[in-house]
Design a protein around this nucleic acid. Structure first.
Lengths: 154, 154
DNA sequence: ATTTCTGCAAATAATTTGCAACATC
DNA sequence: GATGTTGCAAATTATTTGCAGAAAT
Protein backbone atom coordinates (compact mmCIF):
# COMPACT_ATOMS: atom_id res chain seq x y z
CA UNK A 1 0.00 0.00 0.00
CA UNK A 2 1.26 3.51 -0.81
CA UNK A 3 2.02 5.83 2.10
CA UNK A 4 3.09 9.48 2.04
CA UNK A 5 6.52 8.57 3.42
CA UNK A 6 6.98 5.84 0.89
CA UNK A 7 5.95 8.18 -1.95
CA UNK A 8 8.37 10.83 -0.73
CA UNK A 9 11.23 8.35 -0.77
CA UNK A 10 10.29 7.09 -4.21
CA UNK A 11 9.96 10.60 -5.61
CA UNK A 12 13.35 11.51 -4.18
CA UNK A 13 14.81 8.43 -5.76
CA UNK A 14 13.33 9.29 -9.11
CA UNK A 15 14.68 12.83 -8.93
CA UNK A 16 18.18 11.60 -8.13
CA UNK A 17 18.08 9.18 -11.06
CA UNK A 18 16.79 11.93 -13.32
CA UNK A 19 19.65 14.22 -12.34
CA UNK A 20 22.23 11.50 -12.82
CA UNK A 21 20.90 10.61 -16.24
CA UNK A 22 21.01 14.24 -17.35
CA UNK A 23 24.47 14.69 -15.84
CA UNK A 24 23.12 17.32 -13.48
CA UNK A 25 24.25 17.69 -9.92
CA UNK A 26 22.50 16.61 -6.77
CA UNK A 27 22.66 19.73 -4.67
CA UNK A 28 21.38 20.62 -1.25
CA UNK A 29 19.03 23.25 -2.66
CA UNK A 30 17.48 20.93 -5.22
CA UNK A 31 16.74 18.35 -2.56
CA UNK A 32 15.36 21.06 -0.30
CA UNK A 33 12.89 22.25 -2.94
CA UNK A 34 11.75 18.70 -3.58
CA UNK A 35 11.31 17.94 0.12
CA UNK A 36 9.37 21.12 0.71
CA UNK A 37 7.08 20.62 -2.28
CA UNK A 38 6.30 17.07 -1.11
CA UNK A 39 5.69 18.14 2.47
CA UNK A 40 3.42 21.09 1.69
CA UNK A 41 0.96 18.76 -0.06
CA UNK A 42 -1.00 21.58 -1.68
CA UNK A 43 -1.09 23.89 -4.66
CA UNK A 44 1.75 26.25 -3.89
CA UNK A 45 3.21 29.01 -5.97
CA UNK A 46 6.90 29.80 -6.28
CA UNK A 47 6.65 32.62 -3.77
CA UNK A 48 5.15 30.45 -1.04
CA UNK A 49 7.72 27.77 -1.63
CA UNK A 50 10.51 30.32 -1.60
CA UNK A 51 9.43 31.77 1.75
CA UNK A 52 8.95 28.36 3.33
CA UNK A 53 12.47 27.43 2.20
CA UNK A 54 13.96 30.72 3.39
CA UNK A 55 12.84 29.89 6.92
CA UNK A 56 15.14 26.89 6.95
CA UNK A 57 17.87 28.25 4.74
CA UNK A 58 17.94 32.06 4.55
CA UNK A 59 20.36 32.06 1.66
CA UNK A 60 18.30 30.20 -0.92
CA UNK A 61 17.47 32.21 -4.02
CA UNK A 62 14.27 32.74 -5.95
CA UNK A 63 15.82 31.56 -9.19
CA UNK A 64 16.89 28.28 -7.65
CA UNK A 65 13.31 27.63 -6.65
CA UNK A 66 12.06 28.38 -10.16
CA UNK A 67 14.81 26.39 -11.81
CA UNK A 68 14.26 23.38 -9.59
CA UNK A 69 10.50 23.47 -10.14
CA UNK A 70 11.20 23.33 -13.88
CA UNK A 71 13.31 20.21 -13.37
CA UNK A 72 10.73 18.58 -11.12
CA UNK A 73 8.05 19.27 -13.69
CA UNK A 74 10.23 17.85 -16.43
CA UNK A 75 10.70 14.57 -14.60
CA UNK A 76 7.03 14.26 -13.66
CA UNK A 77 7.28 14.88 -9.94
CA UNK A 78 5.62 18.28 -10.06
CA UNK A 79 2.74 19.55 -12.14
CA UNK A 80 2.12 23.15 -13.10
CA UNK A 81 -1.33 24.66 -12.82
CA UNK A 82 -2.73 28.01 -13.81
CA UNK A 83 -5.98 29.05 -12.24
CA UNK A 84 -7.52 32.22 -13.61
CA UNK A 85 -4.91 34.55 -12.16
CA UNK A 86 -1.51 34.78 -13.81
CA UNK A 87 0.26 32.76 -11.13
CA UNK A 88 1.69 29.31 -11.70
CA UNK A 89 0.94 26.87 -8.91
CA UNK A 90 2.70 23.57 -8.40
CA UNK A 91 1.50 20.33 -6.91
CA UNK A 92 3.36 17.08 -6.48
CA UNK A 93 2.16 14.66 -9.12
CA UNK A 94 4.27 11.67 -8.22
CA UNK A 95 2.11 8.57 -7.77
CA UNK A 96 -1.00 10.67 -8.14
CA UNK A 97 -3.94 9.97 -10.40
CA UNK A 98 -5.19 12.58 -12.81
CA UNK A 99 -7.70 14.88 -11.16
CA UNK A 100 -9.44 18.15 -11.81
CA UNK A 101 -9.89 21.21 -9.63
CA UNK A 102 -12.76 23.11 -8.14
CA UNK A 103 -11.81 26.52 -6.84
CA UNK A 104 -13.68 28.66 -4.32
CA UNK A 105 -13.65 32.24 -5.53
CA UNK A 106 -14.31 33.55 -2.02
CA UNK A 107 -11.70 31.81 0.12
CA UNK A 108 -9.48 30.71 -2.79
CA UNK A 109 -9.35 27.15 -1.50
CA UNK A 110 -8.63 24.60 -4.21
CA UNK A 111 -10.27 21.19 -3.95
CA UNK A 112 -9.69 18.19 -6.18
CA UNK A 113 -12.09 15.77 -7.76
CA UNK A 114 -12.12 12.90 -10.19
CA UNK A 115 -14.87 11.99 -12.59
CA UNK A 116 -14.31 9.12 -14.95
CA UNK A 117 -17.39 9.91 -17.02
CA UNK A 118 -16.12 13.39 -17.80
CA UNK A 119 -12.73 11.94 -18.73
CA UNK A 120 -14.37 9.50 -21.14
CA UNK A 121 -16.46 12.20 -22.75
CA UNK A 122 -13.38 14.36 -23.22
CA UNK A 123 -11.57 11.56 -24.99
CA UNK A 124 -14.60 11.18 -27.26
CA UNK A 125 -14.72 14.88 -28.06
CA UNK A 126 -11.04 14.88 -28.99
CA UNK A 127 -11.44 11.78 -31.12
CA UNK A 128 -14.45 13.14 -32.97
CA UNK A 129 -12.53 16.29 -33.84
CA UNK A 130 -9.60 14.27 -35.14
CA UNK A 131 -7.27 15.31 -32.30
CA UNK A 132 -4.66 13.20 -30.65
CA UNK A 133 -5.34 14.19 -27.04
CA UNK A 134 -2.28 14.88 -24.91
CA UNK A 135 -3.64 16.63 -21.86
CA UNK A 136 -6.69 18.37 -20.61
CA UNK A 137 -7.76 20.43 -17.73
CA UNK A 138 -11.01 21.26 -16.15
CA UNK A 139 -11.66 23.84 -13.51
CA UNK A 140 -14.91 24.63 -11.83
CA UNK A 141 -15.23 27.99 -10.08
CA UNK A 142 -17.81 28.62 -7.42
CA UNK A 143 -18.49 29.23 -3.77
CA UNK A 144 -17.71 26.44 -1.38
CA UNK A 145 -19.91 24.97 1.31
CA UNK A 146 -18.13 26.80 4.11
CA UNK A 147 -18.32 30.21 2.47
CA UNK A 148 -21.98 29.71 1.60
CA UNK A 149 -22.70 28.85 5.22
CA UNK A 150 -20.93 31.91 6.61
CA UNK A 151 -22.86 34.12 4.18
CA UNK A 152 -26.20 32.66 5.24
CA UNK A 153 -25.57 33.41 8.89
CA UNK A 154 -25.31 37.15 8.31
CA UNK B 1 -32.06 34.40 -37.63
CA UNK B 2 -28.84 35.87 -36.19
CA UNK B 3 -26.23 37.11 -38.63
CA UNK B 4 -22.70 38.36 -37.93
CA UNK B 5 -23.67 41.86 -39.07
CA UNK B 6 -26.74 41.88 -36.93
CA UNK B 7 -24.73 40.70 -33.91
CA UNK B 8 -22.15 43.38 -34.49
CA UNK B 9 -24.82 46.06 -34.54
CA UNK B 10 -26.46 44.69 -31.42
CA UNK B 11 -23.16 44.42 -29.57
CA UNK B 12 -22.32 48.00 -30.52
CA UNK B 13 -25.68 49.09 -29.27
CA UNK B 14 -25.19 47.30 -25.98
CA UNK B 15 -21.76 48.87 -25.52
CA UNK B 16 -23.12 52.36 -26.14
CA UNK B 17 -25.91 51.79 -23.62
CA UNK B 18 -23.41 50.44 -21.11
CA UNK B 19 -21.22 53.52 -21.46
CA UNK B 20 -24.18 55.86 -21.14
CA UNK B 21 -25.41 54.13 -18.03
CA UNK B 22 -22.00 54.35 -16.40
CA UNK B 23 -21.59 57.95 -17.48
CA UNK B 24 -18.55 57.03 -19.54
CA UNK B 25 -17.78 58.56 -22.88
CA UNK B 26 -18.31 57.10 -26.30
CA UNK B 27 -14.95 57.68 -27.89
CA UNK B 28 -13.50 56.84 -31.27
CA UNK B 29 -10.93 54.50 -29.72
CA UNK B 30 -13.46 52.53 -27.70
CA UNK B 31 -15.58 51.95 -30.76
CA UNK B 32 -12.49 50.98 -32.75
CA UNK B 33 -11.51 48.33 -30.22
CA UNK B 34 -15.02 46.90 -30.23
CA UNK B 35 -15.22 46.83 -34.03
CA UNK B 36 -11.84 45.16 -34.33
CA UNK B 37 -12.59 42.54 -31.70
CA UNK B 38 -15.86 41.67 -33.44
CA UNK B 39 -14.27 41.52 -36.87
CA UNK B 40 -11.31 39.36 -35.92
CA UNK B 41 -13.67 36.60 -34.77
CA UNK B 42 -10.95 34.64 -32.97
CA UNK B 43 -9.09 34.37 -29.71
CA UNK B 44 -6.87 37.42 -29.84
CA UNK B 45 -4.53 38.79 -27.25
CA UNK B 46 -4.09 42.47 -26.46
CA UNK B 47 -0.94 42.67 -28.55
CA UNK B 48 -2.60 41.35 -31.69
CA UNK B 49 -5.51 43.72 -31.26
CA UNK B 50 -3.17 46.62 -30.62
CA UNK B 51 -1.21 45.98 -33.81
CA UNK B 52 -4.34 45.48 -35.90
CA UNK B 53 -5.66 48.78 -34.58
CA UNK B 54 -2.36 50.59 -35.14
CA UNK B 55 -2.61 49.82 -38.85
CA UNK B 56 -5.74 51.93 -39.06
CA UNK B 57 -4.91 54.49 -36.42
CA UNK B 58 -1.18 54.76 -35.67
CA UNK B 59 -1.75 56.83 -32.58
CA UNK B 60 -3.79 54.39 -30.52
CA UNK B 61 -2.14 53.35 -27.26
CA UNK B 62 -1.66 49.99 -25.61
CA UNK B 63 -3.39 51.10 -22.42
CA UNK B 64 -6.49 52.14 -24.29
CA UNK B 65 -6.74 48.66 -25.74
CA UNK B 66 -6.37 47.07 -22.31
CA UNK B 67 -8.78 49.49 -20.69
CA UNK B 68 -11.41 49.01 -23.36
CA UNK B 69 -11.10 45.23 -23.20
CA UNK B 70 -11.81 45.49 -19.48
CA UNK B 71 -14.99 47.47 -20.20
CA UNK B 72 -16.09 45.06 -22.92
CA UNK B 73 -15.56 42.15 -20.54
CA UNK B 74 -17.51 43.93 -17.85
CA UNK B 75 -20.53 44.41 -20.07
CA UNK B 76 -20.43 40.85 -21.41
CA UNK B 77 -19.33 41.54 -24.97
CA UNK B 78 -15.85 40.07 -24.52
CA UNK B 79 -14.69 37.07 -22.56
CA UNK B 80 -11.19 36.56 -21.19
CA UNK B 81 -9.40 33.26 -21.61
CA UNK B 82 -6.12 31.97 -20.29
CA UNK B 83 -4.63 28.98 -22.06
CA UNK B 84 -1.56 27.47 -20.44
CA UNK B 85 0.75 30.39 -21.26
CA UNK B 86 0.49 33.56 -19.20
CA UNK B 87 -1.31 35.49 -21.95
CA UNK B 88 -4.90 36.65 -21.71
CA UNK B 89 -6.87 36.08 -24.88
CA UNK B 90 -10.19 37.68 -25.68
CA UNK B 91 -13.11 36.46 -27.73
CA UNK B 92 -16.39 38.15 -28.45
CA UNK B 93 -19.05 36.55 -26.32
CA UNK B 94 -22.04 38.55 -27.41
CA UNK B 95 -24.89 36.26 -28.49
CA UNK B 96 -22.62 33.24 -28.13
CA UNK B 97 -23.41 30.07 -26.24
CA UNK B 98 -21.03 28.70 -23.65
CA UNK B 99 -18.36 26.53 -25.23
CA UNK B 100 -15.07 24.93 -24.35
CA UNK B 101 -11.75 24.92 -26.16
CA UNK B 102 -9.47 22.38 -27.71
CA UNK B 103 -6.00 23.69 -28.44
CA UNK B 104 -3.43 22.28 -30.86
CA UNK B 105 -0.04 22.38 -29.18
CA UNK B 106 1.75 22.24 -32.55
CA UNK B 107 0.07 24.99 -34.56
CA UNK B 108 -1.54 26.76 -31.57
CA UNK B 109 -4.90 26.83 -33.31
CA UNK B 110 -7.81 27.04 -30.90
CA UNK B 111 -11.04 25.24 -31.78
CA UNK B 112 -14.31 25.36 -29.92
CA UNK B 113 -16.73 22.64 -28.95
CA UNK B 114 -19.87 22.14 -26.93
CA UNK B 115 -20.86 19.06 -24.99
CA UNK B 116 -24.02 19.16 -22.99
CA UNK B 117 -23.26 15.89 -21.20
CA UNK B 118 -20.00 17.26 -19.82
CA UNK B 119 -21.80 20.40 -18.69
CA UNK B 120 -24.37 18.34 -16.83
CA UNK B 121 -21.74 16.21 -15.14
CA UNK B 122 -19.89 19.33 -14.02
CA UNK B 123 -23.02 20.73 -12.44
CA UNK B 124 -23.44 17.41 -10.62
CA UNK B 125 -19.85 17.42 -9.36
CA UNK B 126 -20.24 20.94 -8.01
CA UNK B 127 -23.53 20.09 -6.37
CA UNK B 128 -22.16 16.95 -4.74
CA UNK B 129 -19.28 18.93 -3.26
CA UNK B 130 -21.65 21.53 -1.87
CA UNK B 131 -20.48 24.26 -4.23
CA UNK B 132 -22.56 26.93 -5.82
CA UNK B 133 -21.11 26.79 -9.32
CA UNK B 134 -20.39 30.14 -10.97
CA UNK B 135 -18.20 29.31 -13.89
CA UNK B 136 -16.10 26.55 -15.28
CA UNK B 137 -13.63 25.97 -18.01
CA UNK B 138 -12.39 23.00 -19.84
CA UNK B 139 -9.48 22.85 -22.18
CA UNK B 140 -8.25 19.88 -24.12
CA UNK B 141 -4.69 20.00 -25.42
CA UNK B 142 -3.54 17.80 -28.28
CA UNK B 143 -2.44 17.62 -31.88
CA UNK B 144 -4.98 18.54 -34.50
CA UNK B 145 -5.95 16.61 -37.60
CA UNK B 146 -3.91 18.82 -39.92
CA UNK B 147 -0.72 18.64 -37.88
CA UNK B 148 -1.05 14.87 -37.51
CA UNK B 149 -1.41 14.57 -41.27
CA UNK B 150 1.65 16.65 -42.03
CA UNK B 151 3.69 14.57 -39.59
CA UNK B 152 2.63 11.31 -41.23
CA UNK B 153 3.73 12.43 -44.65
CA UNK B 154 7.35 12.83 -43.58
C1' DA C 1 -17.09 74.18 -18.44
C1' DT C 2 -16.75 69.96 -16.55
C1' DT C 3 -15.65 65.47 -16.58
C1' DT C 4 -13.67 61.71 -18.58
C1' DC C 5 -10.00 59.84 -21.91
C1' DT C 6 -5.95 59.19 -24.21
C1' DG C 7 -1.14 58.06 -25.03
C1' DC C 8 2.97 57.98 -23.07
C1' DA C 9 6.35 56.59 -19.85
C1' DA C 10 7.10 54.60 -15.62
C1' DA C 11 5.49 51.04 -12.30
C1' DT C 12 4.24 46.40 -11.15
C1' DA C 13 4.24 41.36 -10.84
C1' DA C 14 5.76 36.91 -12.10
C1' DT C 15 9.31 34.77 -14.12
C1' DT C 16 13.86 34.33 -16.61
C1' DT C 17 18.68 35.11 -17.51
C1' DG C 18 23.80 36.62 -17.27
C1' DC C 19 27.43 36.21 -14.47
C1' DA C 20 31.08 35.70 -10.86
C1' DA C 21 31.72 32.98 -6.82
C1' DC C 22 30.98 28.36 -5.29
C1' DA C 23 29.76 23.32 -4.80
C1' DT C 24 29.64 18.78 -6.79
C1' DC C 25 31.36 15.25 -9.54
C1' DG D 1 40.13 20.34 -11.77
C1' DA D 2 36.35 20.50 -14.90
C1' DT D 3 31.70 21.31 -15.15
C1' DG D 4 27.43 22.57 -13.43
C1' DT D 5 25.03 25.48 -9.78
C1' DT D 6 23.91 29.19 -6.88
C1' DG D 7 22.29 33.80 -5.51
C1' DC D 8 22.09 38.14 -6.87
C1' DA D 9 20.82 41.87 -9.80
C1' DA D 10 19.25 43.11 -14.08
C1' DA D 11 16.24 41.78 -17.98
C1' DT D 12 11.93 40.27 -19.75
C1' DT D 13 6.91 39.84 -20.46
C1' DA D 14 2.20 40.99 -19.79
C1' DT D 15 -0.37 44.22 -17.74
C1' DT D 16 -1.53 48.44 -14.89
C1' DT D 17 -1.24 53.17 -13.40
C1' DG D 18 -0.12 58.35 -12.95
C1' DC D 19 -0.40 62.23 -15.32
C1' DA D 20 -0.69 66.27 -18.53
C1' DG D 21 -2.82 67.41 -22.66
C1' DA D 22 -6.99 66.28 -25.60
C1' DA D 23 -11.78 65.01 -26.47
C1' DA D 24 -16.60 64.16 -25.33
C1' DT D 25 -20.56 65.62 -22.71
Amino acid sequence: MPSPDRDARDATHRFIEFLKQKRLKQTQQRMDVLRKLLSLQTHVNAEELFHALRKENPSIGYSTVYRTLKLLTECGIAKENQFGDRITRYESSFNRKHHDHIVCVECNEIYEFENEQIETLQREVAKNLGFQMLDHKLEIYGICKLCLRSKESL
